[in-house]
């Protein structure tokens, strides 16, 4: 009874949030609604006993992907009003694609193409522990190779985007700490009555490095 209640709560909020992602005017709100939808989907996963996927959804999608979306939405100067101008025009296409997806889901549920597949038996241990049991033993090889692939992604992203540009003021903390008083402060004995211009020298702090 309680379970059913929560199911309908999560499902309803998720559907509402999903709808708001599409219709809300402010793209930042869209991303926030997307996060809400993710959280409720995670709740649904917990209800069916897939707590690991629920955690993944929160950690990966909410923690990384949605935040990335937020960054992109806020940092890129995109005219969203212009982008959604064709909303009504594209509605039929969206409906057709959605309809096909629904049809395929139904066909996969009631079709018999995959009846020959052997489903792994449900075991007593929780699925997080079950994953951990095989991930570092049976699938150790794949796990390690996945690590190498991620390393490649990191090296590749850095080597493609990082370059030394001139004219960029970057903070070098070591240099800041190494700075001594003598380098930056110059005591000038200003005679009484002399104008500032006659004693002005180049301040040491602004010297070219």
């Amino acid at each position: 009874m309680i379970e059913a209640l929560f199911f309908y709560l999560f499902a309803a909020v998720m559907l509402g949030a999903g709808l708001m992602v599409v219709v809300s005017r402010n793209p930042v709100f869209s991303v926030l609604f997307l996060i809400l939808a993710f959280f409720n989907a995670a709740g649904l996963f917990v209800l069916i006993g897939a707590e690991f996927i629920a955690m993944l959804l929160v950690v990966v999608y909410v923690g990384a992907v949605a935040v990335l979306f937020l960054f992109v939405v806020m940092m890129l100067d995109i005219n969203f009003a212009e982008m959604r101008a064709g909303f009504q025009k594209y509605l039929p296409i969206g409906l057709v694609v959605g309809g096909i997806l629904v049809f395929e889901l139904v066909a996969a549920m009631y079709g018999d193409a995959f009846s020959g597949a052997t489903l792994p038996a449900a075991s007593e241990i929780s699925n997080t522990r079950a994953l951990g049991n095989v991930l570092y033993t049976k699938y150790m090889y794949l796990f390690q190779v996945a690590g190498l692939i991620l390393l490649v992604a990191m090296i590749g992203a850095i080597s493609l985007t990082m370059r030394r540009r001139s004219g960029v003021r970057r903070q070098v903390i070591a240099e800041q700490n190494m700075r001594r008083r003598e380098d930056s402060v110059e005591i000038v004995d200003v005679p009484v009555g002399a104008s500032a211009r006659t004693v002005a020298t180049v301040p040491p702090g602004k010297r070219e490095r």
Binding site: V145, L148, I149, V152, I155, G156, S159, L160
Partner: peptide, 10 residues
């Protein structure tokens, strides 16, 4: 396949 392809894209 992925470990081979990704570095080559870069």
């Amino acid at each position: 396949v992925e470990l081979q392809s990704l570095p080559l894209y870069v």
